[in-house]
Design a protein around this nucleic acid. Sequence first.
DNA 1: TGATAGATCTCGGTT
DNA 2: AACCGAGGTCTATCA
Lengths: 251, 251
Amino acid sequence: MTTTENAAIHTIEQPSIAAGHDLIESGLERDALVTVFGRCTVDYDGRASSQLDAGDRHVMLKPDGTTLVHTDEGQQPVNWQPPGCEHAVRRVAADDGTEELVLETNRSTPAERLLVRFSTVRQISAFSGTDESDLTLSGTEEDLRTRILDEPELLGTGFTPLATERETPAGAIDIYGEDSSGRAVVVELKRRRVGPDAVSQLRRYVDSLGRDLHADASIRGILVAPSVTDRADRLLAEHGLEFVSLEPIAE
Amino acid sequence: MTTTENAAIHTIEQPSIAAGHDLIESGLERDALVTVFGRCTVDYDGRASSQLDAGDRHVMLKPDGTTLVHTDEGQQPVNWQPPGCEHAVRRVAADDGTEELVLETNRSTPAERLLVRFSTVRQISAFSGTDESDLTLSGTEEDLRTRILDEPELLGTGFTPLATERETPAGAIDIYGEDSSGRAVVVELKRRRVGPDAVSQLRRYVDSLGRDLHADASIRGILVAPSVTDRADRLLAEHGLEFVSLEPIAE
DNA sequence: TGATAGATCTCGGTT
DNA sequence: AACCGAGGTCTATCA
């Protein structure tokens, strides 16, 4: 064991089932981040269900209830369980008489269970640490909104923003405003190149606002994004919607 | 170091910068899965950009180029880099004169860079293993499609599937068929409860097929999902589209 | 390489 | 707890 200023790591390699069980249990107890590397099968049942035959994988148990099972490929875990679950460790007699280490992560809404059965455990670690920092992220849709609110004429001379997140029966409009001739304008923002879905979204808001204001034909819809696909461009034209090319940030 | 039947683990705790650098470098060289736990800052620049101040985090480098930075909370990594990137390890002189261990993961399309700077490294591990297994997953949209193709009358007496993934100018229809009176039917499948977006998707296909067949009014659109939200239900009604409640699998 | 849509999407905000 | 939309979404498939 190693301790350094509030941070502790407990690690064992090639542990016995008993020792492994105890280290994981104590790690969960202490709200440590626990990792287990070894040969395991994985079974999931819940919103969907899956099975995975034996292989060497890296399993992470977080104190918030998250479980992640990673292979050596892919950004996404091959299996997982989201935050809010309950972890459990068990020693279980396997079919062949040997003992297995079993990790189980459960939740009730929706009912879901992840079972990781280790035939061989190569390493177990329990990490404690502190992380008070928050991520600062730029280049988001909100940055694009700020940019337009700071300089509304980017959407045409005379555009005046009147509200953000304006509610309609179809959902909230990113930016609601009016143009120089007083026509209502619905603005939908996307931080990246968009396809047909974004056009449909804009169309729902324009239609809905039209019914709300009893002024169907006179409402403009503007999609603001770096670019659009061909199909999206065609859809925009079909429905009389407009496009303005803008990125979240000049950088 | 521990070796067991093709699987090897190299681990060091509280390593010097030099020793840590060498272990990571050799691990990357051997296509191992490398993990580093310690106090670090994280900077990302690419499609967006982000900064994260110092904290204790778990970093995973996969041989396919993936990088994952995990805190003790959340299913998603606080920072990451997708597969296909290039990993690099460096020893860098910090502002205060000490030496830092720096992990850098790069890619070119799009240009993106992730920089993880460790002021303190608590543990480094390099895992080698084998995983030949593929996940078998059920409860997907494809299972729902199979269920309907096996028993088409689930969508009404006389429904006849004619094609899957039938192309229209607006995209591919999940199931294309006709009803007992010979009317064309567009079926959109969702494995779970759906909102307005799925209705718009179905609408795009129905509209597009209508133009293609020059038979606008006579085409039926059926959304198949476990359930719909209120707003989606209203949208369906507005556009004369239908809903059939079905789940992917009886289980 | 780009486009399109699925995903056990996750996550945050709001009702 | 459900709904809604954003996301550096990622991932698979197909042109």
